[in-house]
Amino acid sequence: MSGPLFTECSEQCGIHIWADKFLVEILDPETGEPVPDGESGELVITTLTKEALPLIRYRVRDLTRKLSEPCRCGRTHPRITRISGRSDDMIIVRGINVFPGQIESVLMKIPEVGNHFMIIVDRIGPLDSIKVQIEMHESAFSDKMSDMMALKKKISGALKSVLSLAVEVELVEHGSLPRSEGKSKKVIDNRKI
């Protein structure tokens, strides 16, 4: 629906929504209530001028944030940020919402690891646990155990600061995680509820 619905400008800091034609709401995926400006939520679209096939509060299930302040390019149409994931991907671990997209964006900023990862959620005793298996680049491999432990600590620290959740990090061999076309399955949930 890009183009008629929204378009990026030369500033490339978000996508402008043509707000005179479309009403965009960002809602909390669980409560259905609007979230404050700038906070992440589910994209919901209503067409204002389509007559034959209107959409009324259509839940796209993509996660984004809305930015209402005017853009540097001068346009005053609101913007949405890059899609960070899907609301139906969301997992809840110890009461905290976790999106695979959040983990992916943390890992993409760490040059030692690739973007191949797998999230494994389990329940050990009464507590949920979350583990991320990550494929390491060969160039980041060190024969010194202390270097490898420091890398694990760096990754788990970066994940914790974003997710507010202690995450176990497991480094795995390059090429060992399953590959699939398109949207790959990133979560294995072993919890029995």
């Binding site: 491999f141 024969d143 061999e173 390059h174 090429g175």
Partner: peptide, 11 residues
């Protein structure tokens, strides 16, 4: 070992 896909280095 490298060609076989192992994560390997020379030290």
């Amino acid at each position: 070992l490298h060609d076989a896909g192992f994560t390997v280095s020379e030290t």
